[in-house]
Amino acid sequence: MPLYFSERELVLPGQLLSDDGKRSGEGTYVLGDKVYALTVGFATIKNDKVCVIPIKGTYNPQPGDRVIGIVIDVKPNGFEVSLGRHLTATIRIPDKKEVQALNLKVGEAIYASVKEVGLKGVFLEAGEKIKKLTSGLLVDMHPSKIPRLIGRRGSMINMIKKETGCEMLVGRNGYILIKGPSPTNEFAAVAAIRLIEREAHSQGLTERVENLIKNILGSGVKDERTEFEAGK
């Protein structure tokens, strides 16, 4: 059966991918036994199924994922936590005293793990696995780029930590906490994140990120002046 795409080709919603309805995988749908793309994304074959990896997919929490969230509600039996991008998770704690013991307030950031994902929503592990984040620079990145930020066996993130001298805590949902010896070092780490976000696809990225950090920390943060520009 023919396929109508090359591996990792950019496809658009409604684009015909295959004549074999049985090969419809994630990110596709079947109409009249043909497989079409559901979203803008990259077409690929996974386990013999035709799939589309969405380009702007929302974060799909998986049990075991480490995430950074912001407490948005405190209840007698637990907490509600925002994971960003319209995603809310729950921490269920049957014991009222334990809820109080955690002493979490609305607006506070936590580092936690995903316990389960089901029809009733996303649940985070309770108890000692919750770490309250009290200081540092919290930034966000599109969740789909997080694997690139980490790099193969942590190569990218470790290089950034080493070059900037910052500690970094990465939430799979896209929040990243940076803590460094000075704001300049933290800003260098943010600049690295933004570069990865923009050029996640390109070759030789690790080297460019490294050079960027060296440039910033070598010459100090660039002074941004107010610029007016005339439109067309």
Partner: peptide, 11 residues
Amino acid sequence: LAEAGIPMADL
């Protein structure tokens, strides 16, 4: 909608 990543049968 396409930019937001919402699944659609077609544009």
